[in-house]
């Protein structure tokens, strides 16, 4: 399945893109996004384990299932305020 993922802050800078399309296994879960990002963007390695992942506007965990067309975003820990 193909999933479009939005990237923010340092994750976006390291990937050089604010949106990437990833090829994931069928019935993929959030953990598969982490694997695909690591493979495609080796320079993102130091961030991968701490990336937060959202599906819709909710935080997801590695077991969260993905559906085609879902709004998925990956970003490092937040620092607003």
């Amino acid at each position: 399945m193909r999933i479009a993922v939005q990237l923010f802050a340092k994750a976006r800078d390291l990937a050089g893109a604010s949106r990437v399309e990833l090829n994931l296994p069928d019935a993929a879960r959030v953990a598969d996004v982490r694997v695909a990002l690591r493979q495609r963007f080796p320079q993102m390695e130091p961030l991968i384990s701490s990336l937060l992942v959202s599906v819709g506007t909710e935080y997801a965990n590695d077991q969260t299932p993905l559906r085609v067309g879902a709004d998925v975003a990956c970003f490092p820990p937040v620092s607003g305020g």
Binding site: F8, A9, K10, L52, S54, Y59, A73, F75, P76, V78, S79, G80, G81
Partner: peptide, 14 residues
Amino acid sequence: LIDRLKVVVPIWKK
């Protein structure tokens, strides 16, 4: 509100 904002709201500073 401000403590939680700094942990859960997806905003970043550079």
